[in-house]
């Protein structure tokens, strides 16, 4: 028997020993035809990802080492941009602010969405759930920017909320250009999506296990956190991850509702490109953001799919 290629013999990918996979040269003609068939279907997405994701990403990393002189970008390989950005206090402040706001957004969205998702998954009929999910998708029909500007009418000093507050004798409350405003914007962006994702994962929870918990003396309230949340864990973490990614990279909410001061990283990117054509420094920020998101996404997915260790 032919040995599989050496590079395959010791690799293990997601628990699958690749050496066990059938190398193409051992395949029968039918199997080989199937491989070509499968490859044909995969090809468009592979090409797309290389052209429009991997390529630009590599270019962005390369660009972070370029230099700008007299408003002209020069293709160099120097660490100036990296050392400059990392030595600036405002960059560090901005990084931690963005991290803080995105984390807060994730926590708030997950907590606010959960009761709604729980009700949709467990307390309403199948058809009501379908309608509710449909209605949750409707906000996406309008531009995000339009929805953010709609909040002006509500949150402004002379807006709807303050009008109500003044009738009961309260002074206007500043909500625009605050972190509160930013979080309201993030919720506009993420909340419907988080509800949809949480509802799907909760609806998939095996009802037998819920009843088994009741049967073993677990009260309905206690069942939520001892049984239902552990069972829906994967979906709940994925929903939170989506919320984090969207909030972390969002420019509109912190800019228009949060007042852009202090700036979050996406705002900082805009400011950097505007001031003196500093695209390479903006690239440094973007690379740092990508690295952060990839790390967090990887950690979240690992946590989401982690199975109990079996001794």
């Amino acid at each position: 028997m032919r040995q599989p290629p050496r590079y395959l013999t010791f690799r293990v990918y997601q628990g699958v020993d690749l050496s066990q996979l059938n190398p193409v040269q051992n395949a029968s003609p039918t199997e080989r035809r199937m491989d070509i068939f499968a490859l044909t279907w995969r090809l468009p997405i592979i090409v797309w990802q290389i052209l429009f994701f991997v390529g630009p990403l590599l270019f962005m990393v390369a660009m972070s080492f370029f230099l700008v002189k007299n408003y002209v970008m020069q293709e160099t390989f120097v660490f100036d941009n990296w050392s400059k950005m990392f030595s600036r206090g405002y960059f560090r402040d901005s990084y931690f602010l963005t991290l803080f706001l995105a984390t807060l957004s994730t926590i708030v969205a997950s907590l606010v969405a959960f009761p709604a998702s729980f009700a949709l998954a467990f307390k309403v009929s199948e058809s009501t759930r379908r309608w509710a999910l449909f209605l949750l998708i409707i906000p996406f029909f309008t531009s995000y920017l339009v929805r953010i500007f709609a909040w002006y009418v509500i949150l402004a000093e002379s807006g709807a909320i303050n009008a109500v507050l003044s009738t009961i004798g309260l002074r206007p409350y500043t909500m625009l250009n605050t972190k509160f405003g930013t979080i309201v914007g993030y919720m506009t962006l993420t909340l419907p999506l988080v509800v949809v994702l949480q509802t799907f994962s909760l609806a998939n929870v095996d009802r037998n296990l819920v009843q088994a918990a009741h049967n073993l003396g677990c009260s309905p309230w206690r069942t939520v956190y001892t049984v239902i949340i552990p069972l829906a864990k994967t979906g709940l973490i994925v929903a939170a991850l989506f919320c984090f990614i969207l909030s972390f990279g969002d420019f509109v909410s912190p800019y228009y509702l949060g007042g852009s001061k202090p700036p979050t990283l996406p705002i900082l990117i805009i400011d950097t490109t505007k001031s003196g054509q500093q695209w390479p420094r903006a690239a440094v920020i973007a690379v740092v953001m990508m690295a952060t998101l990839i790390t967090i996404a990887f950690a979240a997915i690992t946590l989401a799919y982690r199975k109990r260790a079996s001794r």
């Binding site: 037998n208 296990l209 009843q211 918990a213 049967n215 864990k233 109990r308």
Partner: peptide, 15 residues
């Protein structure tokens, strides 16, 4: 009144 289920209904997230 504990029950033994046809599907067994063991909790997969517990050993």
């Amino acid at each position: 009144t504990p029950m033994v289920w046809q599907s067994l209904a063991l909790f997969p997230f517990l050993n």
